[in-house]
């Protein structure tokens, strides 16, 4: 470690693993989701039906990514309130302190780091709110995706029991009136929201690299090693 700097822990091992699992699943969901929406590679492959399940595999990967998102989201939602490390909820509540911090970090971004009036050693309100937007988008993908999924369980049965489609109806039927009243609207918004997520990811990656370059505190290392470095006062 460079003299004059100290190390601050920012992400636990679990948070880092979760981050990369979500990142991989997101790529998988986008690639397979686009195929489901418009099968874009041709399958006039001279292959008998014996192991040719191109759409089925795409849907399988998509739904596997989805179920991993499900589990991850439930844990993340829990950690928002009950994390023993840092509870994100404390940074989201619009207390005067958080609001000031939010705008100070934003100011830092739009003044290209000429103004920096906040403590960048810990998680800040701006980034936490930005992550909240992601978690809400992901939750929306879950609800709309599970609504599309339950259409195929119209018998009311599933391999894990009748409770599963029943719970899915209860949890996701609201997405139909919410998006415009037809199943197609749910599908449209499931697809559209993918682009909002990709935009989110683009800025997310840019911003983390930008911080690393301009703040000179090794922010990008957080997601690999779990810590960054700040000047000792």
């Amino acid at each position: 470690m460079k003299p004059g700097y100290k190390k601050v822990k920012r992400m636990t091992a679990f948070m880092r693993i979760n981050h990369w699992v979500v990142a991989i699943c997101m790529v998988a969901a986008v690639v397979t989701g686009l195929y489901i929406g418009h099968p874009y590679y041709q399958t006039l492959i001279a292959e008998p039906a014996v192991d040719k399940y191109v759409m089925a595999w795409n849907r399988w990967v998509h739904l596997m990514a989805a179920i991993i998102f499900d589990v991850s989201s439930i844990i993340i939602a829990y950690l928002y309130f009950f994390s023993r490390f840092e509870k994100p909820i404390l940074k989201i509540l619009p207390t005067p302190k958080n609001v000031v911090e939010f705008f100070m970090v934003f100011l830092n971004l739009i003044t290209f780091n000429r103004v920096k009036k906040f403590d960048s050693s810990h998680a800040d309100s701006f980034n936490t709110v930005y992550f909240l937007i992601f978690h809400l988008l992901l939750a929306w993908m879950l609800f709309s995706g599970l609504q599309l999924y339950v259409h195929g369980l119209e018998s009311g049965h599933s391999s894990i029991g009748d409770w599963w489609p029943a719970v899915l109806h209860l949890a996701t039927d609201w997405t139909v009136p919410f998006t415009g009243g037809t199943y197609m609207d749910v599908r449209y918004w499931h697809h559209m929201s993918m682009y909002f997520i990709i935009v989110w990811v683009m800025f997310h990656i840019y911003y983390q690299v930008w911080r690393t370059i301009y703040w000179q505190e090794g922010d990008i290392a957080i997601v690999f090693g779990g810590s960054k470095f700040v000047k000792k006062d």
Binding site: E154, S155, G156, H157, W163, P165, A166, H169, L170, D173
Partner: peptide, 10 residues
């Protein structure tokens, strides 16, 4: 199941 599947088609 009955409570939850009010809107199912089964």
């Amino acid at each position: 199941a009955k409570m939850f599947s009010a809107k199912g088609v089964r």
